[in-house]
Design a protein around this nucleic acid. Structure first.
Lengths: 258, 258
DNA sequence: ATACGTGGTTCAGTATAATGAACCGAATTC
DNA sequence: GAATTCGGTTCATTATACTGAACCACGTAT
């Protein structure tokens, strides 16, 4: 009878767990499921799903359309600010990009780390299409992404090892680094250079540079990255780009700490 | 034994309701409460609070600091996008502001309506300080704010009346309109002009102009407003500013509908 | 040293929230 | 027009998630 949940175990507050799954579903896809569809997707009895959905609507977590479908409510927006640092982070990011014309040619992303993953919370696309779209809320394994490496590099080695002690994520491309030792070298290089590099480890034809943003406490509150096509990434230019990125990150960090 | 809950009734999925209250608390103030504090604030037994909080941490809704305090987790960020329209809305807003130098002199805000309130989901401050900061997640009564009036104006009169059928919100300044009749005139003016006006009804020394953003369905998905000090708001300039705002709103709306 | 306050953990008992079967209405399909 | 599917609602039953009391661990004041 015990449902097998992979990864993380969990036994209590089922209503909350289900609500989170529903919100993930509704937010993660463009589909606008109705109550019956959600009930099926979650394997819940109809009556249970209806009760839960009604409560979620009442709480403002969901809204329901005229056709009975559910879409995300506005209430979660109250939370995306949160700590002082994070409240201001997203606007600050977009704001600052506007004042950096040199970055206009690149797709620039903002993300935070959640465990061994990075979650994208901001993105400004370049005029040059990348062939990849970073959707807000998207998650990628931290060890492969530029932002992830920049954020990991800001942690003590022991913590990195602990975070990645679980099963190593499946590689996304043949270039994806495999294993803690290889990552260690990249982390060291990141610390030395002040910026991180994802050389085709997420998408083979994409190169990304990353840097951490630090709040007043010096902690890495988030990370930013610029992404470009490999064909646009002359190797000689990367250090220059990295320096510009690191400088941008420092500027934003200063404003976070103000 | 039945706890008296004002306003909205509610009986089921208590875990979810409590989780929402906790997130509201944690996100709403800069305080970093610990488990015992939250347990007290919610009137929950310690053991219940601990179980709930542990689950919330596991789900990524909360994070716990080294000192045992709780702060907002990153998981909710996955939801703030949500529907296609809203996923793109916030970046689109910031993105578009960057290309409108004429707006740089004003504080520009983006918000959505939740019931009879507006919730701020984006803000780009002007170089000229306003003396007010619009925090993401902040809420104000819709009838007093420029955005709120613009959003209300896009609804049929009957719906407005129903939304505001409850007790009228306490006025924020002596200029705050009081009563449905007075608001009706403002709504009519908004519909005629294509933009709305808050003339010191939120803060006496602040004037705001608002306009609605419409998605592909023509529905008002959100609203934007520009805010300026009364001393900067020569009465003759308001129509001109309003026209510019309405035009900006139309442009963003078009990109929402694409 | 003792008493006290605070924050956290454990666990059996029970109030309570999830369940699923039955029922209803509407829209399709045969 | 009967049968079927689909979405939604209701309600008695029961599994289960919450409760509260007892118990640690620690720091501080008496």
């Amino acid at each position: 009878m015990q449902e097998i949940e992979p990864g993380a175990g969990g036994g209590s507050v089922p209503a909350l767990r289900r609500a989170v799954r529903i919100l993930d579903l509704v937010a993660g896809s463009t589909a606008r499921p109705n109550a019956a569809g959600l009930s099926r997707a979650l394997g819940l009895p109809k009556s249970t799903a209806h009760g839960l959905l009604a409560a979620m609507v009442e709480l403002g977590l969901l809204e329901r359309g005229a056709d009975g479908s559910y879409r995300l409510g506005v209430h979660p927006m109250r939370w995306t600010g949160g700590s002082v640092a994070r409240t201001d982070l997203v606007p600050l990011f977009y704001d600052h990009l506007a004042s950096r014309p040199a970055l206009a040619a690149y797709t620039v992303t903002l993300s935070v780390r959640e465990g061994a993953e990075v979650v994208y919370i901001g993105c400004r696309n370049s005029d040059r299409p990348l062939g990849v779209t970073f959707r807000i809320g998207m998650r990628l394994p931290a060890p492969f992404t530029a932002t992830g490496k920049a954020l990991l590099a800001s942690l003590p080695d022991a913590e990195i090892a602990e975070l990645l002690s679980g099963p190593w994520p499946t590689r996304l491309t043949p270039r994806s680094v495999g294993g803690l030792a290889a990552l260690g070298a990249e982390i060291a290089a990141t610390r030395a250079a002040g910026y991180s590099l994802d050389d085709g480890q997420v998408r083979e034809d994409m190169v990304c540079l990353g840097a951490a943003l630090r709040d007043h406490s010096g902690q890495a509150a988030a990370g930013m990255a610029i992404s470009l096509l490999r064909s646009d990434a002359a190797p000689g230019r990367l250090p220059e780009l990295g320096a510009m990125l690191a400088e941008t990150a420092r500027t934003i960090s200063r404003r976070l700490g103000g």
